[in-house]
Simulated assay, not measured.
Amino acid sequence: MNETEIVTTFLQKMAEHDVETTVAFLSEDVFVHNMPVAPTHSREEWKQRMLAYENTEGAMKVQVLNIAGDGKGNVLTERLDSFLRNGSWIEIPIMGAFTVKNGLIVSWREYFDMGATKGLSEVEPDGS
Results as ranks from 00 to 15, higher is better:
T40G: 03
G96W: 07
A68Q: 11
P93E: 05
D81S: 09
L65P: 04
G69W: 01
T22P: 06
M35A: 11
G115V: 00
E78F: 01
V19W: 14
T22V: 05
R43Y: 00
M60I: 04
K118P: 11
T77R: 10
E122G: 03
L26R: 03
S128W: 02
T9M: 10
V106K: 07
L76T: 05
A15D: 13
L104H: 10
S82F: 10
L84T: 08
E44I: 14
T22D: 00
K72P: 10
M35F: 11
K61Q: 12
L120K: 05
I94N: 10
S121D: 04
A116F: 13
F25D: 13
V100Q: 12
H41G: 02
V64W: 02
L76I: 01
F112P: 01
T9F: 07
T22Y: 02
V106M: 07
T4D: 15
G96R: 01
P125V: 05
R109D: 05
F25Q: 11
T117C: 10
T4H: 14
F98I: 11
W108H: 12
L104Q: 15
E16R: 11
T117K: 03
L26Y: 00
S88C: 12
M60V: 03
V32M: 05
T99E: 12
V64T: 06
N55C: 13
L26I: 01
N66H: 09
N34E: 14
E124V: 02
W108P: 06
A116Y: 09
R49F: 13
L65M: 11
T117E: 05
P39V: 00
E54S: 13
Q48S: 15
W89G: 01
N34S: 13
T99I: 15
K47I: 12
M60W: 04
F31T: 11
V106Q: 08
R79E: 04
M35Q: 07
I92C: 03
